[in-house]
Design a protein around this nucleic acid. Structure first.
Lengths: 164, 164
DNA sequence: TATTGTTATACTCTATAACTATA
DNA sequence: TATAGTTATAGAGTATAACAATA
C-alpha cells in the first residue's frame, strides 16, 4: 500500500500512538493538570510579589481571614482554610513571634484560642492587600474582568461545600 | 448618637474590620486562593482514584506525555511538564524500575535519553486513562460540559506561553 | 560555552499519630 | 467521648548547587 500503513497498524496507532491519542484523553485536555499548572504559576508569582513581606500564600491567607473575622478561633481558621491544626500551630507561632497575630484565651472555653491581628499587622495589611491585587492582575493579565468572574465562580463550584 | 458609631469609627471599620473588608479584597474573592483550593481537592481525588495503580499526578503526566510523543527526550519532557531535570531524574528511574518506561540512547546526540513506554505500560494505559476520566467527572460533577470547556480555556490562558 | 542528565540537599506543604487539657 | 491545640515525624513537590559527559 502506497500510504505505508495497513489497516491493522492504523487501528493500533489510533489507540496508543501520538496520532491516535483521543483528544479528550490528551494530558493538556485534563482540567486537573491545567489546574495544577495554573496554580503553580500563581504560587510562584505570589512568592515574588510578597518576598519582601515574607508572606507565603498560607500565611497571608491566615492574616487576611483573621482580619476579616477578628476573634476567630484557631480551629475555625483551620476549617475555613482547609488546614490541619497540626500544620496551623507552628504557623500561628511564627506569626505571633513576628508580632502580627495575638492569641488570647477564650472567655468561657479554656481550650480555645481567640485570634486577632496586632496593631502592626492592621497597619501593614492595606499595603499587603495592594500587593496581592498587583499579583492577581499580573498572572491574570490575559483574562478579561468578565472571564475572571467566570473563573472565580467555576473554581468555587469545584471545591466549596455549599449545597447545589 | 443612637446608632452607636461616630463617623470616624465607621471610616476605620470600613478599612480593617470585618464589616469593612472590601469585597474584592476578601480572601475568597482571590482567584489565586481559589485555584489553590480547587487544585488541592483535585490532587487528593486523583490520589484516591489512582492509589491502586500507584500513580501520582506527576508520574501519570509523564507516562501520558511519553505515550503521546514516543521518542521524546527527558529534557523535552521536563520543558513540557514544567519540571526541573533534577526532579525528573529519580522519577524516570522509578518508572523504569517498575518496567513502565524504557530509556535508550539517542542515535546521534550521546547526551540525550530517548523515552518510550514499555509494552506493559502501553497495555495498562487505556485503563488508567479511564480512571483519570472518572476522577475528572467526579471532582467536576457540579460543572456542565460547557463550563468545563470554559474553565479549560481560562486555565490555559493563565499558564500557557502561547502568544496572545 | 551551553546542554543533558545525575546526585545531594533544603524548604514548604500535607498527613498521621500521640499527647495534654478541657468540654 | 469529643474537641482544641501541640509536638514529632514522614512523604511528596520544588528549588539550587555542583558535577560529568557531550555538543
Amino acid at each position: 500500500m502506497a500510504i505505508g500503513y495497513s489497516m491493522a497498524e492504523i487501528a493500533i496507532r489510533s489507540k496508543s500512538g501520538k496520532a491516535g491519542t483521543a483528544p479528550e484523553d490528551r494530558l493538556d485536555a485534563q482540567i486537573g493538570y491545567n489546574l495544577r499548572r495554573a496554580s503553580t504559576l500563581a504560587l510562584s508569582d505570589f512568592a515574588v510579589e510578597m518576598a519582601d513581606a515574607a508572606l507565603r500564600p498560607v500565611t497571608y491567607g491566615m492574616l487576611a481571614l483573621i482580619d476579616e473575622r477578628p476573634g476567630i478561633s484557631a480551629a475555625e481558621l483551620c476549617r475555613l482554610l482547609g488546614m490541619k491544626s497540626a500544620n496551623m500551630a507552628p504557623l500561628l507561632a511564627e506569626l505571633e513571634e513576628r508580632g502580627l497575630v495575638e492569641r488570647d484565651d477564650h472567655a468561657r472555653d479554656k481550650r480555645v484560642q481567640v485570634l486577632a491581628l496586632t496593631k502592626a499587622a492592621k497597619t501593614a495589611m492595606p499595603a499587603w492587600r495592594r500587593q496581592v491585587r498587583n499579583h492577581e492582575d499580573r498572572f491574570l493579565q490575559r483574562l478579561t474582568k468578565k472571564e475572571r468572574a467566570t473563573l472565580l465562580r467555576l473554581l468555587r463550584l469545584i471545591w466549596s461545600e455549599e449545597a447545589d
